[in-house]
Every structure is written in C-alpha cells, then in structure tokens.
Amino acid sequence: MNAILSLKNVCYSYHTADGETEALKDINFSVSPGSFTAVVGASGCGKSTMLSLIAGLIAPSSGEIYFNGVPASQSNMHIGYMLQRDNLFEWRSVYRNVLLGLETQKKCTPEKLELVDHMLGAYGLAPFKNARPSQLSGGMRQRAALIRTLALEPDILLLDEPFSALDYQTRLEVSDDIARILKEQDKTAILVTHDISEAIAMGDQVIILSTRPGRVRDIVNIRLTVPGKERTPFNSRSAPEFSSYFNKIWKELAQ
C-alpha cells in the first residue's frame, strides 16, 4: 500500500455541557502522494473537524490515522494547514507574517529565508514585503497565508475553504495560482470546499460527505480530457466530462 495518508474508521464527537455532537462517523479513505483530494459536504457536516484530526490538533474518538502506513502518533509527517480565514497579524508586516511558522519552529535558516524570498517574488508579493496586511487585497492575503504555510515545506497541505472570502474572478485566478504552486512543488493536498465546480476542477478525487454525522457517501475519481493542454483548474472547467461529474456529485449531495 503506497498511500501517504489513510483514515481507518475514524470517528469524532464534540463534548460540551449541552451534550454530545457526533461530528464524524466511520471515515475511511486514502490519499496517494502528489495527488489532490477535494472534500465536499453540507455546512456543519464535519469537514473542518476532519482537517483538524489530520493536522493532529485533536485526536480521534476512535479509529486511526496513518501516514505512509505508520500510525499518526509515531509519524513525523509535516502537515501544513491553511485555515478558512487568513489570520494575518496586523501588528506584523507581511514579511514577518510569512515568517511566523519558521519563527515558532526555530527554523529561520538562510535556505528557508531564501525560499520565502523566492516565493514572495514568484507570487507577486515582493513589493509588499514591508506593508501591513490591511494594505493587501483579498487574493494577496490568501497568497501570503499560503506562503506562510508552504515556508515550513509540509509534506501534506490541508486547505479549508481558502477561497470562500474571494470574489468569483479572483477566486478562479487564485485557485489556478495555488494549483500551479502545488504542482510545481509536487505537494499532496486536501481541499475542503462548498463549491462542486471547484472540487471537480482542482481534484484528482472528490470525497462526498453526508450530513452530520459526516460519513463518506462516495469517492469519485476525476478523469478529465483537456486536449493539447496541461490540466489547470481553469481549463478543466471546459472539459467534456465536467458536467456529468457535476450532476453526479450534485445528486449525491442532495440525497
């Protein structure tokens, strides 16, 4: 088995004074290295909870998560987690925001700083290094947050609706950007989204979750023919298979 990540019968419940909320139930799936997995599901079905479990912020109530076949507790896999909101700190410049992860992990080596400088240049943020986050546009803020995550060179990248705060035009551009960046660096990624088109356009596989408690309803492998061109999220949308995948996932979500 060569999956970089697999979840086996993972369950999770939240406990509060008001009672118990079963968020996830018997989640099983695996992700192969270098692939892009999209997760769709209704609001409140446990998508963010699933990413927090994979990132190790919370532990499963039962079941086990494996990285390269090794249980999560014994693995030292580096996980990057990009939250829904960019959470840039206003009291830091853009540059110092991007360095936040390296600072906390005491990894501000010259090589890492060079990598950060390279990414800032490549993703159009170099002129804004010393700006405050409030001076950036929504798309630039997302890219800054992405660089902050990538600076730690994670093996697996988790993205929790990173585009939901953007307008449609910017959203298409940023998702193309991010897909390109991830492909360049051959990253394994898991993207949570509400947008079925986005899931098909970006994903190699789409995991469909049921309403709460979230279970895996179906896993759809996406095979698109994009004649003569490299597959990007944008030109994926004009592939002939696109609308049939859309209808299939739409129906399964509506069940």
């Binding site: 912020l57 939250l83 959470n87 992860g101 906390t104 992990q105 730690l152």
Partner: peptide, 11 residues
C-alpha cells in the same frame, strides 16, 4: 481562530 493558526504552525 488565530490560536488555532498558531497551533497549526506548531507553536
């Protein structure tokens, strides 16, 4: 959410 971010960065 910012505390969660710090935890994702290993703080």
């Amino acid at each position: 959410d910012k505390i969660k971010l710090m935890r994702t960065l290993g703080a």
